[in-house]
Amino acid sequence: MIGFLARRLLGLGLTLWLASLVVFVVLEVLPGDPALLMLGVDARPDTLAALRAQMGLDQPVPVRYLGWIGGLLSGDMGISHTYAVPVADLVRDRLAVTAPLAGLAILLSTAVALPLGVLAASRRGRVADYGVMAFSQLGVAIPNFWFGILLVLWLSIGLGWFEAGGFPGWSEGLGPALKSLILPAVTLGLTEAAILARITRAAVLDTLGEDYVRTARAKGLGAGAVMRRHVLRNALIPITTIVGLQFAFLLGGAIVVENVFFLPGLGRLLFQAISQRDLIVVKDVVMVLAALVVAVNLIVDILYAAIDPRPKGMA
């Protein structure tokens, strides 16, 4: 287990290091002068030069890379050019929106998809099964931005139950803040729920066909007990894996959904930073997102190893 963990951690570090190289190189060649953008077209050359020096843009490339990566390793994410505050503060504020959004979406989609999947599997070939599969197909096919719009139309403007978007901030209290995340989380969770329902159905069907389940049944164990004790536990393995694999898509979706509901999350910060050529923020946010994905995948791997009752050597 220790060896497995060490290997995994090493791999994680390697992936992140490669990611940092890619991100840095990409942003080095990005067209557009951030100083010009900040000061406008009337700025005088000396003013521009002063600002570039202030931003550290006059240093050689390797120095800047090492400075950036060294800062990240020691927990210093640098100062945003445009906002003039530490990037760490910005990222923390925005993560306080994006992380709960993603978490809520996973929670909602799992809560909907697991029962649906189990239901479909246990009613295989019947109306309930077809219903769940139809939901799953539609959920994957409908673009989530479209779904979000329909939700706003119906629940915000039609019924007035929710605000059309925006985020009041956690300082306004848990209730209002969570409420403003519900519609976005439902939007974000639709595709996830559709995929998960289908995976759950397949996993449960697979496990139902395994020898040990048949044995348990043959021994006279009730259907409910078989489902709980044997089927669900084993079906959780592929389900967990898929939840993990889907995490990157979920974060990507969050970037989009934040824009549908104009939530001040990491995705919106990234869009703004790119258009502002606030390169340090872009680099840091991309690395944070990549680190989140990689870390979640690692956790999934560990869970996988922990849940999997079968001997090692499969992962």
């Binding site: 915000s156 989009v256 824009n259 919106r268």
Partner: peptide, 10 residues
């Protein structure tokens, strides 16, 4: 704000 367009005129 690339994604900012992402909502229709509900």
């Amino acid at each position: 704000a690339l994604g900012a367009r992402l909502s229709l005129a509900v």
